[in-house]
Amino acid sequence: MLSADRLSVRFGSKTALADVSLDVPAQKIVSVIGRSACGKTTLLRAFNRTNEMIAGARTTGTARFHGTDLYGRTVDPVEVRRRIGMIFQRATPFPKSVFDNIAFGPRAGGFAGDLHELAEEVLTSAGLWADVAGDLDAPALALSAGQQQQLCIARTLAVRPDVLLMDEPTASLDPAATARIESLVHSLKATYTVVIATHDLSQAARLSDMTAFLDAGELVEYSPTATLFTNPRTRQAEEYVTGRTS
């Protein structure tokens, strides 16, 4: 459903992603693993055209969504981002109320329904409803780090995307919050296609159906998760998942 074909991204003269080709099946969770700076974030951002907001970024190759080239001339990047939502490594709630954070995306898309209903629905999906139901006008920045990340997920769900790109969503959270987010991701699988970048190999193993291993911008191996962790085809992947480094 979502696919990359010889996708490359350069920042100035530096190649962050080199000739990556892969297919993300619908209603599956795909995890992207690899050492720091291998290009995980860049790959995710390439799928919803947010690299182009960075000065000096250049994308080549194609990314397709339901067969449509996301970088095609007639494609509106705003529409791409509405269909393919992204959650960042660090929670970035706006310095506004919880409700306004949720409402921002739907309002931008001309949402005509009941925003309160929508807020309750997505906050419930994100497991945050019980915590904030009493005061939706509370400032989002007053929430804990884990709650902030849940809010950001809810905020993205409110746009009703088809795909969720999650960039290390639990990197700065404690184990309890991490567990909450993980079970949330798991439950989202029924309705969404999820691509999740992570450094936490057990998380990748627990959550995902497919795993992509990137090294220095190149896709080294893309296999079913069970295969990649137990019986990888490549030596680099094996070294990485077993913790041995060359």
């Binding site: 947010t50 529409e79 981002r81 509405r82 960042f88 905020r155 746009v159």
Partner: peptide, 10 residues
């Protein structure tokens, strides 16, 4: 903030 806002399709 800017990136998050853009990523929400605004």
């Amino acid at each position: 903030y800017f990136h998050a806002g853009m990523a929400l399709g605004a």
